[in-house]
Design a protein around this nucleic acid. Structure first.
Lengths: 196, 196
DNA sequence: AAATCAATGTGGACACTGACCACATTGTAA
DNA sequence: TTACAATGTGGTCAGTGTCCACATTGATTT
């Protein structure tokens, strides 16, 4: 049973969800402690009982994003049968997540440095990276990728996928449709593993 | 001779330089129109005679960053003799620029979408990308890279280098020294062209 | 040389924000 | 029932972006 504390009934969860919605609708710049409080129907000071300050709430939003990203990558991987396809599709899921929820993605990676110390944030983001590392290790063990240098290979893959995601979100690519962009992402991911 | 207009004497340039310094010293979050005005020794309203609003000044800062990035890439390329080395070293220069001026780099790519319409910004950023495309085209023409798909190849290279830069700036890599990070960047760039 | 005018800089104002304070309310526990 | 800690409220403060009317100044026209 979900704990229903005190006056509001799990205000913390309501604030988190509200923050995600505000950011999705109006961008991180429009994200305001007072606006989030308004949407939750509480006073402008209530959030301070659940988050130390604005950055703490942002860190929680980012951590939530990393959990959802990890889930999306695993689901995409689970749909494939061989190790290399799992790796490729989880990479595609990374890009898809970014373009579907660009503002959330931005918060996850451009959060103020202070927020990066939040243990919940650190754990959630590391879990996302570990997911990728595991897919690479499995591909190596099944002989679909050269063995050795697992970490370097993982950082390479992450850099490539992250760069595609970031540039896509920033509207930097010359593609006119999202489909064309995803086609390029697929090309790039294929290329990166075939050349190795 | 530099134009020395009216009261302050090229306040526009002073504001731009001040903005770059503020961002470099205290991060984009601490960047404030009023703080920039203070540093230039003018009233909080003077900037509005030279920039429509805060975002316009940010766009100018970003454009300036792209000009410097282009210069750094070209200088790095000019130091090499063969086409492929020019390409690789300009990629390294991209990463080096990002880690040397992380806040400036952030402003360049995470500027509000509105700012991206600024013609100065658009031109400066496209010139940076064109620099990369030219290095790739030259490498192809000299047979050091397979011909064809120049644009896709350029976007691949850009994505990789941009991802490395972004993750490095965000402190996401497990390297303890900047040298170790740059070593990985070199490995990744080498790998990306050798596999092709 | 004098008068005019647009470009530039100033001070005041307003709504909004993040953050603190003291205080009120409420669920829990003694 | 009473005490208490967790939670929510209203008030306040400095700081911000942006608008306004007004002051100053360099250039332009007569």
């Amino acid at each position: 049973m979900p704990r229903r504390p005190y006056h509001h009934g799990n205000l913390r969860r309501a604030l988190l969800q509200g923050a995600v919605r505000v950011i999705a609708e109006a961008g991180p710049a429009a994200f305001t402690l007072r606006e989030v409080a308004r949407r939750a129907g509480v006073s402008h000071n209530a959030p301070y009982r659940h988050f130390r300050d604005k950055d703490a709430l942002l860190a929680a939003v980012a951590a939530q994003g990393f959990r959802e990203l990890t889930l999306a990558m695993r689901e995409a991987g689970d749909r494939q049968s061989n190790a290399l396809d799992k790796l490729k599709q989880s990479g595609m899921a990374y890009v898809v997540f970014a373009v579907r929820r660009p503002e959330h993605f931005t918060v996850m990676f451009d959060a103020p440095v202070i927020a990066c110390k939040d243990p919940e944030y650190v754990q959630a983001s590391q879990e996302a990276f570990n997911t990728l590392v595991n897919y690479i290790r499995n591909s190596q063990e099944e002989g679909q990728l050269p063995s050795g240098n697992t970490m370097e290979r993982a950082l390479y893959a992450w850099s490539l996928v992250h760069g595609i995601a970031k540039l896509a979100v920033a509207g930097r690519f010359p593609f006119r449709t999202k489909a064309a962009m995803l086609k390029f992402a697929k090309f790039a991911i294929d290329e990166s593993v075939s050349g190795a």
